[in-house]
């Protein structure tokens, strides 16, 4: 799932961010260069892809691993 989420991050950024860079990043997605509008696109993509509701108040949704963990929790 981590790889797929990284692909969606890249897609949401319009290709500005490479999947490899996203997977290797040790910083938050905004720090990596993901803009607000791309982040919002990403949330929409994640909800469609994984059939879940992403709660923006859920915390730790600013990193790739935080998102993966959140989605995994939603799908249990």
């Amino acid at each position: 799932m981590r790889e797929r989420v990284a692909e969606l991050v890249s897609k949401a950024s319009g290709g500005d961010l490479a999947v490899a860079d996203i997977l290797a990043a040790e910083c938050s997605l905004p720090a990596l260069g993901l803009t607000s509008i791309a982040y919002l696109r990403l949330i929409d993509l994640l909800e469609v892809e994984f059939d879940c509701d992403v709660d923006l108040d859920g915390g730790h949704l600013d990193t790739l691993d935080g998102l993966v963990e959140h989605i995994a929790g939603q799908r249990k």
């Binding site: 938050s28 905004p30 720090a31 803009t35 607000s36 600013d62």
Partner: peptide
């Protein structure tokens, strides 16, 4: 501040 706290400068 944005980089430190994982937020956007807009926020």
């Amino acid at each position: 501040l944005a980089a430190r706290h994982g937020v956007t400068t807009s926020s």
